[in-house]
Design a protein around this nucleic acid. Structure first.
Lengths: 229, 229
DNA sequence: GCCAACAAGTGAACACCGTCCACATACGCT
DNA sequence: AGCGTATGTGGACGGTGTTCACTTGTTGGC
């Protein structure tokens, strides 16, 4: 663990040098806050939320530990910023999946495919970037993400993307008013649960394809479960 | 945080004194391993998996930090033992819910009620003991709980309890062979996901009753989703 | 153009954590 | 009785988050 962090540290530093050849002309960093979040994100990517270490982040940014306190109230604030960044990545992954679709003429089919794309995009991201995914849903959302962070190019967070597709189902007649109520959580829970069971639960050893197949079955179940009645 | 741990420490110690008035007659503790797990369990109950701290556990057991290493390979091993204890508590909570049922003559109704009891017992435990629940499903299951731990009085872990009720559904004709395949995960995922969304996700502020109502809807959805087709 | 106020980064220190080492001790078996 | 060993102790090391006092560029008002 320590060794991986150490080697990672080295890689990161050398990569950074390519981007910013002069180590630091001004003794001011210039963009320390972002650098810290980037470093934290990389640590989260590898080791999950517990791996984002303030001192290590400052080390990677080439700065003394205390410098971080000019930009974050403490370590918790840093990991919260990282968490937010992870949510953005998740949103981007879902958007990418959504953009593969063409509206077409059949609005019901489109709505169905949207829901499916969101579910599978979610699951796919969880399996491809377990560290980020676990970080995205680690302890304290605190504020209900009222801020504009957490989003990707469409400016929507994962929750809003899901709402969007459910609205499409409502408009196209796949859902009635009653079925639409709190449908976000009815749809979200199964996929979220499967993702976590696969990442840190008893499905850890299940091969990726099997998990994705289970995911498809779950999405189908949700679709039927929401529409009938 | 530190203060709560400190006060807790005090409470625990004084309670312990009532149980074991003579602090330690023999310089041997006698049952240190269990004492450490108990202390760890209490910490997990309050603060989740990250709150189980080896040194604090030894402090509560009235022993030097290194004594723990005679019984656990390291902190990770301790939290793993605590995790196992948390799973047992979960199993016990589910069993309690199951035992409220009477088989009756209608085997289908009984099977249905069993599934429902498991789901709601699971969810209820998660909401009542969030720290333990989160600990139960924290990072490394490593071994697939082949051991006899993780169980309650029936000697079954939560997964096996779920399997049992799904078998009842199969036998009573509510499920066909195809629907029974991997039904454990189809049923587990939604409730697990809801529990986590409610504990550390965006549903944190949703009142308990609302979460339970969502849980009921999910269980219904699962039931229908498994049986039809 | 100067200079003061201020933002940004530094250094040393503290308390806590997990863990390793060498050492002490009492229990249990022969 | 006595020895071996399981169990617990003490001290140390490196790591972490955090605080305090400090230095040092930058910048805005005159």
């Amino acid at each position: 663990m320590l060794s991986t962090i150490a080697t990672l540290h080295f890689v990161q530093r050398t990569m950074k040098k390519n981007v910013t050849p002069k180590k630091r002309q001004t003794f001011r960093h210039g963009d320390l806050r972002n650098a810290l979040v980037a470093a934290g994100l990389e640590m989260a990517r590898i080791g999950g939320p517990d791996a984002v270490v303030l001192r290590e982040a400052t080390r990677r940014a080439g700065v003394s530990p205390n410098a971080a306190y000019r930009h974050f109230a403490g370590q918790a604030a840093l990991v919260d910023a990282v968490r937010s960044a992870c949510l953005s990545r998740l949103a981007a992954a879902i958007e990418a999946e959504l953009k593969k679709l063409r509206p077409g003429s059949d609005s019901q089919a489109y709505a169905r495919k949207s829901l499916r794309a969101i579910g599978m995009g979610y699951l796919g991201f969880a399996l491809s970037e377990p560290g980020m995914f676990r970080t995205a849903f680690s302890a304290p959302p605190a504020i209900h993400s009222q801020n504009q962070a957490n989003t990707a190019s469409m400016g929507l967070n994962p929750y809003e993307l899901l709402s969007l597709s459910l609205d499409r189902m409502l408009e196209s007649g796949l859902l009635n008013e009653k079925g639409r109520r709190e449908a976000e959580y009815m749809a979200w829970s199964p996929v979220h649960g499967l993702a976590l069971l696969a990442l840190e639960g008893p499905l850890k050893k299940m091969p990726r394809e099997a998990v994705l197949r289970l995911g498809e079955r779950l999405v189908n179940m949700v679709e039927r479960g929401l529409s009938c009645k």
